[in-house]
Design a protein around this nucleic acid. Structure first.
Ligand code: MN
Ligand code: MN
Ligand code: ZN
Ligand code: ZN
Lengths: 141, 141
DNA sequence: TTGCTATTGCAACTAAGTTGCATTAATATG
DNA sequence: CATATTAATGCAACTTAGTTGCAATAGCAA
């Protein structure tokens, strides 16, 4: 579980500045248990009286994405992109079509088996994948 | 492999009209081996001198999607949605990051096993999923 | 042929994100 | 601390992808 201080130290070492907006955005991202959109992030900052701007939010999200601090997620049923802090292990999402909640799932060892099969049978080298499950959560069934 | 005539007959039975634009769009969708975007579809129609319009294309794609004649695909690395005719079996895609080619893969029986596990362990009922693999095709490795 | 109404085209609009540029503010250095 | 350097910011204008209202057009059943 990557902590705020670690991320800031890493950025600082890279010659990047720790601004109010940057710190707050990373805080919000760490604190949000669902992947959050740019708009949601901006709203969250404004609520905390952190002066912030749409452009800054988008630029910062791209910055953090390039540095693999956050990952971008595109839910099939949505138009906006969402972001979440990249913790150790890669995972996927269960999206409830009832209440729109999102849960994490890990099932990666398994997918790697398919990826090897795909390599063997088609010569296609898988480097990355995106997987999301849509359905109904326990409460909504 | 669903043929043009079958799709048109099905729509006709439903009380929908077989217009020039509708027929041509379905033809293009059937003929395109990669999922195609609205813009690509429009360009394709114009090249064939079928009078068509952006609004019509978007409306028709939504119409065909609602009727499960086409499925909408959102590639993670793209901003636009793509569409392909739904043939019998559900499948996924291998997207080459080198040449941008797209191949189909089927591995569904397997994913259903995970979906049952997710149900058992989390009480989440999976109704649908989206999976795509990004990597390098045989030619691009 | 005609009437009903599904479909179309246009222009105007929205949503999500990007860009150029002048200004501000972190932070390294003396 | 003072100051210079340049990373980061804010604003307005722009772009891209898709949507909507509405009047005109055109399938198709009778
Ligand atoms: Mn997650
Ligand atoms: Mn396909
Ligand atoms: Zn739910
Ligand atoms: Zn390739």
């Amino acid at each position: 579980m990557k902590a705020l201080a670690d991320i800031l130290a890493e950025l600082s070492r890279g010659g990047f500045r720790i601004t109010r907006a940057r710190r707050s955005m990373i805080e919000v991202l760490i604190g949000s248990r669902l992947p959050i959109s740019a708009e949601g992030l901006l709203a969250s900052l404004i609520k905390q009286r952190v002066p912030a701007n749409k452009t800054t939010v988008y630029r910062e999200l791209n910055f953090l994405k390039e540095r693999k601090i956050v990952q971008e997620i595109q839910f099939l049923h949505e138009r906006v992109k969402r972001y979440e802090v990249v913790f150790g292990s890669h995972h996927h999402h269960l999206i409830c079509m009832g209440c729109k909640s999102v849960e994490d799932v890990e099932l990666d060892g398994e997918l790697e088996k398919y990826e090897r099969d795909i390599m063997k049978s088609r010569g296609f080298k898988v480097l990355n994948h995106a997987l999301e499950f849509m359905g109904l959560c326990e409460a909504c069934r």
